[in-house]
Computed example of a mutant assay.
Amino acid sequence: MLNEATYMGIGYHYIECGLPNVYLKNGYILETFDNEEYLSIDDMDALHVAIGSNLAKKSKPLTGAELRFLRETFNHSRRVLGEIMGVDQQTVGRWEKGESAIPKTVDLLMRQLFLESIDEDSSLRFLLDKLAENEAETVMGDLVVLEEQNHHWLRVASA
């Protein structure tokens, strides 16, 4: 059964993306077979980039669903995003479910991460990876493993 927005002439209410306020005016085909609706979208990747770009540039803070959409669009797990943000995956889950407020720094970083994911010339990802490496070194920072090489003691890169 066609949704109400289609009948009102707005277009297709694209709830499949996980966001409550996205409508498609065109670029899709909705067909019914055996009383089941089937949606086909022209260039879904480009559609998701357009949705993400709008989210990244909006003036209001991101909602949990919008944070999840951006994370999924650049194909990161909660664990990986947590590592980037310096939190555990449960914290990311709480943000996405609306159980915890999304810190402003996380909101801004998510927007920038998304924008960088569609612009391969950006160096933010390199910087974030280095920060994550530094965090891992900080955790391992108290552990000192030395190795003798040519009469010199050197710290082993990873224990």
Score class of each variant (00 low, 15 high):
Thr138His: 13
Leu143Ala: 12
Asn26Phe: 06
Tyr14Phe: 06
Met110Leu: 07
Glu133Pro: 02
Gly98Leu: 05
Asn150Ile: 05
Glu116Lys: 01
Arg68Ser: 15
Leu47Val: 11
Asn35Phe: 15
Glu83Ala: 04
Asp129Asn: 15
Thr91Pro: 03
Val92His: 06
Trp95Met: 09
Ile41Val: 15
Leu154Glu: 05
Asp129Leu: 15
Lys58His: 04
Ala5Ser: 05
Tyr12Cys: 01
Gly18Asp: 06
Gln89His: 13
Glu37Phe: 10
Val145Cys: 11
Gln90Trp: 06
Thr73Asn: 15
Leu128Ser: 08
Glu4Met: 05
Arg155Phe: 11
Asn21His: 08
Lys57Ala: 09
Lys60Thr: 09
Asp119Pro: 11
Glu96Ala: 13
Asp107Pro: 00
Met110Gly: 05
Leu70Met: 01
Gln89Ser: 11
Glu133Lys: 14
Asn54Val: 01
Gly9Trp: 01
Gly27Ile: 12
Ile15Asn: 08
Asp142Tyr: 14
Glu72Ile: 13
Met44Cys: 14
Asn35Pro: 12
Tyr7Ala: 06
Val92Ile: 07
Glu36Leu: 14
Phe126Ile: 14
Asp129Cys: 11
Asn26Arg: 09
Ile102Tyr: 00
Thr105Met: 03
Leu127Trp: 02
Glu137Ile: 02
Asn54Gly: 12
Gly64His: 03
Lys58Val: 06
Glu99Thr: 01
Leu113Phe: 05
Leu128Gly: 03
Phe74Pro: 04
Arg125Pro: 13
Arg155Lys: 13
Tyr14Leu: 01
Val106Met: 06
Ala101Val: 10
Asp121Ala: 10
Asp88Lys: 03
Ser77Cys: 04
Asn21Trp: 06
Leu127Pro: 03
Ser53Ile: 07
Asp42Lys: 09
Glu96Phe: 00
Leu19Phe: 04
Lys97Met: 12
Ala5Leu: 01
Glu135Asp: 13
Lys130Glu: 07
Ser59Phe: 02
Asn26Pro: 04
Asn150Pro: 02
Val87Pro: 02
